[in-house]
Design a protein around this nucleic acid. Structure first.
Lengths: 219, 219
DNA sequence: AGTTGCTCTCAGCACCCTCTCAGCACCGGC
DNA sequence: GCCGGTGCTGAGAGGGTGCTGAGAGCAACT
């Protein structure tokens, strides 16, 4: 669960390159080669971010964004474009894009801007900071600052990763249930897994906000 | 109420220019000339977005962002910088900034990027200024300028939020009872909860207007 | 087939929050 | 100064929320 990215780009070479680099970074990448199919995919599947070329066949890039926003889809969008004038950028941003990058660009900057887009939705990183240690998602292990090492189960890790991706933000039980415990019936599962995390990592990792939910961090 | 922007820039000429342009756009602009005061202002008043110069006296720009994020303040930040290399941009974005604009830039692009920032985050900003800190309604937490963090119960938070929404205005007990303590019988509940808030946040948060009621702020 | 570990359900208990109340302190007017 | 009114503070009952241990069902592995 590193982050799902929809890449809408008609230049096959560039699309292949970006897809490869993004995949290497750990993202799940879905590609579309024209605006029409891109729009369809964006409307039918959930993504954490989108990278959209401005000059697209079938449906133009900015038009595509406008249509998505009209339908209430707020997925953050990074626009790629060869058109680099200030007016072009202003136009792109005002169309509803979150960021605007002009070609040619460096891959490291693209990746950094994608990270900035995703930061609040989901952390791309393999390692996430949790109170008193680091959570390594690839091994589902917490390396504690004190020196210990704790192994987490899949659910425990997913729960902690979700909270750690947005430190301080309160997640409701319903939200956590939906995003971590796919098909559970009662919200008590969340309580139980919070309990498991606390037992393994100490009371300070997750704090309760009575009546609202849970959030990362102690007081 | 278009959006409150904190501008932290040490170049007086540039700061004046930006402040004027932003104000013309309808934003409420607050200026700070160095990192230290900027940090203090950001910790004691609520903003919807921040524009931060990277090369600041007292506290450096990226350092300032890190400190804010550490305190749980997620206000979106646009970094301005003369340092334009790709590494510099990546560094800035990874430090927690949402966007990075290099000097020289055109004003229209800055404005467009500010619009993009605000569009994405305006509804998330649920901070209210209270004497000595910020009340975050989503976590029911007061971030104190001094550095502490205090958790409030639902009623405490509701009461404080109501008062903080209109600083200086006096609310009668009957009014507060009606709007916060729905089905209470006696007005003493209000007294009790004012007492709780004072115990947690100090005597200065709420002051008594004898015979009339309570209001936010000290004497 | 047995074992182990993970996932999820459930029920009782403990604690926190909410609100009430009573006694005391303080401020004002006479 | 005295006295009534207003506000402050601590104690406590009740109800709701969250915590926690026990256990059943499952899948993976031995």
């Amino acid at each position: 669960m590193n982050g799902r990215i929809l890449l809408i780009e008609d230049d096959a070479d560039l699309a292949a390159l970006l897809a490869r680099v993004l995949t290497d970074e750990g993202y799940t990448v879905k590609r579309a080669a024209d605006g029409h199919t891109g729009l369809h995919v964006a409307l039918t599947r959930p993504f954490d971010a989108m990278i959209v070329d401005r000059g697209l066949p079938a449906v133009e890039g900015l038009d595509l964004i406008a249509r998505l926003r009209n339908r209430g889809i707020g997925t953050p969008v990074l626009v790629l474009s060869a058109r680099s004038s200030t007016e072009d950028r202003v136009e792109g941003l005002d169309a509803g894009a979150e960021d605007y990058l002009t070609k040619p660009f460096e891959l490291t900057e693209l990746l950094a801007r994608v990270r900035a887009l995703l930061r609040r939705h989901l952390d791309h990183a393999v390692q996430l900071a949790v109170p008193g240690g680091l959570l390594d998602l690839s091994t589902r292990t917490v390396q504690q600052a004190a020196g210990g090492r704790v192994e987490l189960s899949e659910r425990e890790s997913d729960l902690l990763a979700l909270l750690a991706a947005r430190p301080g933000v309160v997640f409701s039980r319903a939200d956590l249930l939906d995003r971590v415990f796919d098909d559970a019936e009662s919200e008590t599962v969340v309580d139980t897994y919070v309990h498991y995390c606390r037992r393994k990592l100490g009371q300070g990792v997750i704090s309760t906000v009575r009546g609202l939910g849970y959030r990362l961090g102690g007081t």
